[in-house]
Simulated scan of single mutants.
Amino acid sequence: MSIDFKIIDQSIAHITINRPERLNSLDVQHDRSLANVWKRFNENPDLKVAILTGAGGRAFCTGADILDYIPHRRRMAEHQSGNAAVSFGGLTADNDVTKPTIAAIDGFCVAGGLELALACDIRIATHSARFALPEVKWGILPGGGGTQRLGKIVGLGVAMRMILTGDEISAEVALNNGLVTDVVDRHELHDVALDIARRIVSNGPLAVAAARQAVLASFEVPLFHGLAQEAELQRHLLLTDDAREGVAAFSERRKPRYIGR
């Protein structure tokens, strides 16, 4: 299968959709293969962060391979209940992946490809990246979380325009609206993504997991409940060995040695 998986620094998963001849679109087989890779990442306790990217330079991912995947989804729709969520590539359903993820985007990032990127925690892009959710042009809607995540990231107005028109936006527009955090030259993309990943790995793993959980929860619950959850997570962290080590390392001006407990 053309989903490449390698491990960097024993702690970072580098996942590449390697189907450039199809603009890194996912047919049913590759959809399942990518889902299996995310499961492998989730289940390996040594892996702390994942970087997702696409091969070939023309596309990050252009979503579903229409002629193969959409008929498959249509068959599924005939037998599903009305509220059954479907995870695209094993990443877009609720809590598919429980550790930090970075999308390193070059070229077209459209349809389900953008939904994969939206499901990642951090998105960086090259100047040639292009973003769109064109599903309404095909008589469907963004069904991999696009209608739910895009507005929370870029705001209601921008999301409505992108989703209802299907229009494409540039990397610069994406940056200005918070869809990506960095726009870099193509030759810098891998190094910038890896630098971010290494900086995450260097932090306390329990703290990273709790902070990620608290931030994601802030989009789902009222402020009062979010603050209560944040306080409970902080209380738990303060009682860990990692928190004691973090304070000791700061006091002693050395690099902390976290053990994840």
Rank of each mutant, 00 (worst) to 15 (best):
E135M: 15
Q148V: 13
G166S: 10
I105K: 01
M162R: 06
S170T: 14
A132N: 10
L114I: 08
R161P: 06
T147C: 13
L150D: 00
A129T: 11
A129S: 14
L133D: 00
E135L: 15
L118T: 07
T98N: 10
R130Y: 02
S170L: 06
A159C: 11
V154F: 05
T165L: 12
R130D: 07
W138F: 15
L116I: 08
W138I: 14
F108P: 00
I140P: 01
K152W: 03
K152P: 10
M162T: 06
A103Q: 04
L118I: 13
G143W: 00
K137Q: 12
G155P: 07
C109K: 01
R149E: 13
I102L: 07
G155K: 11
G145V: 11
G113E: 02
G145I: 08
E115W: 05
I102N: 02
E115T: 10
A159T: 04
G151E: 05
F131R: 11
G157R: 09
L116K: 04
A117S: 15
F108K: 15
T165N: 08
A174Y: 01
G157I: 09
K152I: 13
P134L: 14
P100C: 08
G146W: 00
C120D: 10
A129R: 03
G146A: 13
V154N: 02
E115R: 04
P100K: 09
S128R: 13
E168H: 09
Q148G: 14
G157W: 00
V154C: 14
P134T: 12
A111I: 07
A129D: 06
G107R: 03
L150W: 00
W138R: 15
L141T: 11
E172A: 15
L156K: 13
L175A: 12
G113M: 05
R149A: 15
K99V: 08
A159E: 02
A129W: 00
K137C: 14
C109V: 12
I153T: 11
L133H: 05
M162C: 11
L118W: 03
A111H: 07
T98G: 12
P142S: 15
L141N: 06
I169N: 09
I163F: 04
T101Y: 00
G166M: 09
A117R: 07
L164T: 11
I163H: 02
G145E: 02
D106P: 04
L141W: 00
T126I: 06
K99P: 08
P100E: 04
G151F: 03
K152D: 11
I140E: 03
P142E: 11
T147K: 12
R149N: 14
E135H: 11
L150K: 01
F131H: 08
G113T: 03
A125K: 07
A111E: 02
P142R: 06
M160Y: 00
V173S: 08
V136Q: 11
G113V: 01
